[in-house]
Design a protein around this nucleic acid. Structure first.
Lengths: 344, 344
DNA sequence: CTGAAAGCGCTAACAT
DNA sequence: ATGTTAGCGCTTTCAG
């Protein structure tokens, strides 16, 4: 009596175990295990008895215990920036599909662009003994993951490279994409082009800025300080930047926006502005086609899929050296990037 | 030698355990456990020695083992329809935030609107012994979860109610929202209004259709069969439906679209159409403000937050009867819903 | 303040 | 074909 009460506390709710099933079916523990795991060496008749007992008791194997014994959890963790950002949804889903194909479940967590939170999350996942980790870095120092990786946690970075460690990374060509997008504006006659991007400590933001500068330099165009604005993607900040660039002594005639969050706000700000201003944005956005917004699109799903495939290849024993894969971007001309400068 | 090799196979990579730390620090196993878990009863000096050993060995507690002993995993599972759908991103993120506040990690999985896959996923999560489950149902029979719930898995359904079992559910007011949206169109003079929605076996789709019919009936307006189209949200299917309703013998002058997926396609289809057609959509969409699309917005984040809070209240021991919470919707008038009928 | 022993539910290895 | 034993890494219990 007291014994039952005591046990109950410790058990998940009050679940039957293989032992209980074995007792009920009048067989040994291992036989139950065999049936549950579809292993051979059980007569149809015993199997039937075991299955009956399972049914009656509502038994379900405790994978926690299994994991402890087997050493693999069939679980991967995905640390991203913000699950609510439409860019990460498809990426996450793509990772999930690959994980599913490999029989693994997926932990998801958002770092909220906070390096500490990223670390906390990644390490919590390691403590749960995920087999692998896919990380969209918020921070720029990932040495904290070295012991984990040495201990066998396969790790792939996506969207941004790891900092201060040598690890797989799957990236979009931010530099090339931005350079191409800005070149597109230049080809349409613009000479004063503004760049509004995310905080420069974010790798992709820095790369896109570099792409902008390269395109300007390629064309022999100067870049005024007033034409470059980096910072948070807060709508307030971005709107102000747009306003200032359009009102400067040498006003820009075109804008390049550094990511989807920025683009959304820029489109809104330009809608309020009287004159037409050309715009190319990095990242595609839903309904951007109807608004005629020209963008440099990256394939978020391909990013996730590629990273996950690489992860599972490593889990399957591949021992290749860490590698950096770069996926191309696509310029989608829809109108806003093809507006000629209004006052040349 | 052989012994080490054998062990290695079984261990997660090759990680040190508390036993290893204890040996290295020259203390007992339990002392390490005390230090790791911040339990009292360890002199500062021993604690220091233990921490050193932990540092040197790169020890990290194996939560899988801990879970097995403690019976709680500090893990919740979220089964949704499609992580890539912009509606579920914010919902998922909201759940995550609540989970985080309670020290729990989050499993995410997509059912792809397939009842079997939903069940497979939910049960896999139960096998991992998640403490709780948040489910956006794809199917309409959730009796398979009864044994799990009895065994102590807290379960809350979101966005759609559970089928054939009594369980908590957090929903948006689909009926009221749709009724209000259609009434809005009627108030602007429309008498022939089309409804394009998702498959009717989806609870929200059925409710929204019911809301449409109620609004029409309230106004004493007939509903022609040709004005109602339910089915997949495939763009092809939806475009065709739009085209047919506009070309019918009694063509509609306004449309109500049943969810975000449908609305996107309808907006595109109407953009290609010559005449202006009024539109109100269920669900808000990014950039819908700029396109002037009037919508009935639901608060996806509130849905997720409310469900997660309820889940954790149950995990903290609340024994209230299962309840159905319904969150209100908001009509956002932006232009498309205020267009007068062109031919009255 | 500290540690040895038992056991969480399962699987691997080895009987029978 | 089936069962028995040991042990995965941790926490709980209880004894020093």
């Amino acid at each position: 009596m007291a014994d039952i009460a005591r046990r109950t506390e410790h058990r998940y709710g009050n679940r039957p175990t293989m032992k209980d099933v074995a007792a009920r079916a009048g067989v040994g523990l291992k036989t139950v295990s065999r049936v549950v795991n579809g292993e051979p060496g059980v007569t149809p008749d015993t199997e039937r008895r075991v299955r009956e007992a399972i049914e009656i008791l509502g038994f379900r194997r405790n994978d926690s215990a299994r994991v402890l014994r087997k050493g693999r959890t069939a679980t991967v963790g995905l640390v991203l920036e913000d699950l609510a950002d439409p860019f990460y949804g498809p990426l996450s889903r793509a990772v999930e599909e690959v994980a599913r194909a490999h029989g693994a479940l997926l932990f998801n967590g958002s770092s909220a662009e906070d390096p500490e939170r990223e670390q906390e999350l990644a390490l919590a996942l390691c403590a749960r003994r995920v087999d692998g980790l896919i990380v969209i870095p918020a921070g720029d120092d990932h040495r904290y993951l070295e012991p984990e990786m040495r201990a066998g946690v396969a790790t792939v970075f996506v969207d941004r490279p790891a900092g201060r460690i040598d690890a797989d990374a799957v990236l979009s060509d931010s530099f090339g994409g931005a350079r191409g997008g800005v070149a597109h504006l230049i080809a349409h006659g613009h000479r004063r082009i503004g760049f509004i991007g995310d905080r420069p400590r974010i790798h992709t933001a820095a790369e896109r800025l570099r792409g902008y500068r390269a395109a300007m330099e390629d064309a022999g165009l100067p870049v005024r300080d007033a034409w470059v604005s980096l910072g948070s993607t807060d709508p307030e900040r971005v709107s102000t930047a747009v306003r200032e660039m359009l009102a400067a002594s040498e006003p820009v005639t075109a804008l390049f926006s550094g990511n989807n969050r920025v683009t959304v706000t820029v489109v809104r700000a330009l809608a309020r502005h009287g004159q037409p201003v050309a715009l190319v944005g990095f990242d595609d956005i839903e309904l951007a086609d109807l608004l005629g917004v020209t963008v440099v699109a990256q394939d978020a799903a391909a990013l996730g899929r590629t990273a996950a495939e690489r992860l599972f290849r490593r889990l399957d024993g591949a021992e290749e050296a860490p590698e950096r894969l770069v996926l191309g971007t696509t310029l989608l001309a829809r109108g806003s990037g093809e507006i000629a400068p209004s006052d040349v």
